[in-house]
Computed example of a mutant assay.
Amino acid sequence: SETPSLLKIQKLAEFMNHRVPAHKRYQPTEYEHAANCATHAFWIIPSILGSSNLYFLSDDDWETISAWIYGLGLCGLFVVSTVFHTISWKKSHLRMVEHCLHMFDRMVIYFFIAASYAPWLNLRELGPWASHMRWLVWIMASVGTIYVFFFHERYKLVELLCYIVMGFFPALVILSMPNTEGIWELVTGGVFYCLGMVFFKSDGRIPFAHAIWHLFVAFGAGTHYYAIWRYLYLPSTLHTKVSK
């Protein structure tokens, strides 16, 4: 008869595959595939509604442009992720399509980060040196995209470091702004992303690690959306009431 430990290993195998070498891609189980799709698909409609809300709250051209940029980055993240994970789960035989979508899924993260900073950089007062971050953040996103195109899945640690630098470097400008409203929400969202990175690199060690990472991304994005809505788009009269 099978030993309890063997039965436990077999049961765990239903929810998590073995960890793969650094140069290979982890293959989720059926349950993990479903969780990967659901944990980002759920946020597509809320992200569209939230982005539309910012658009209708816009009072000038810069607020409108920033709402569009941020909305496209936010919605694009969840849509691309959901499409990629669905194809990877149900149409994995389409190797080239899956490979291209996987690259696109990685690329869109850079533009999501840049888009998340856009409202703060466009709508808040910046110092002379800090104003360069308005365009520098997009150069960083473009460099990250080029890196993915040429070195996709080849140097995974470097890829992770690129995301970290992209996420933290513009924050130095945000923290130096004269108006510090929303800073704590931005820091809280950043903490969610940092904690999520632990699971981002834990496939094969923790069951549903990638889906858990997706949830941390959603929590971080939600926290940052709240900060943008409250401190950059909410009319001043309502802002005062909320603050009280």
Rank of each mutant, 00 (worst) to 15 (best):
P4I: 08
P4F: 05
S5Y: 05
L6I: 15
L7S: 08
I9F: 03
K11M: 10
E14G: 09
M16W: 02
R25W: 00
Q27A: 09
P28L: 11
H33Y: 12
A34W: 02
A41W: 02
A41F: 06
W43K: 01
I44C: 01
S47I: 11
I48P: 04
I48W: 14
L49Q: 08
L49D: 00
G50T: 06
G50F: 06
S52A: 10
N53I: 05
F56Q: 12
D61P: 02
W62N: 13
T64D: 04
I65V: 13
S66F: 05
A67M: 10
W68E: 01
I69K: 06
C75L: 05
F78W: 07
V79D: 02
V79H: 02
V80W: 01
H85K: 01
I87N: 05
K91A: 12
S92F: 10
S92L: 05
S92N: 13
H93E: 15
H93K: 15
R95E: 11
R95A: 12
R95P: 04
E98N: 15
E98G: 09
H99G: 05
H99K: 14
H102P: 00
M103P: 08
R106Y: 10
R106N: 13
M107L: 07
M107C: 12
V108K: 00
I109W: 06
I109V: 15
I109M: 09
Y110I: 02
Y110M: 08
I113R: 02
A115R: 02
S116C: 12
L121R: 09
L121K: 02
L123T: 10
L123H: 13
E125Q: 10
P128Y: 09
A130K: 01
S131F: 03
S131P: 00
H132N: 11
R134E: 10
L136H: 00
W138A: 13
W138M: 14
S142F: 14
V143Y: 14
V143M: 15
I146V: 14
I146H: 05
F149N: 04
F150S: 15
R154Q: 15
L157F: 13
E159P: 04
L161G: 04
L161S: 10
L161Q: 09
C162K: 01
M166Y: 04
P170E: 01
L172Y: 06
V173W: 07
V173Y: 05
L175T: 03
L175E: 04
M177R: 00
M177G: 01
P178D: 13
N179W: 04
T180K: 14
T180D: 03
W184D: 07
T188H: 00
F192V: 06
F192L: 08
C194E: 02
L195V: 00
M197N: 08
K201C: 11
S202D: 14
S202N: 05
D203E: 12
D203G: 03
P207L: 07
P207G: 09
A209S: 12
H210F: 08
H210I: 07
H210K: 04
A211S: 15
A211L: 09
A211W: 04
W213G: 08
W213I: 09
W213Y: 11
H214A: 03
L215S: 09
L215R: 03
F216K: 03
G222V: 01
Y225I: 03
Y226I: 06
Y231T: 00
Y233C: 08
L234Y: 02
S236W: 03
S236H: 08
T237E: 14
T237H: 15
T237C: 05
T237Q: 12
H239M: 12
H239W: 07
T240M: 12
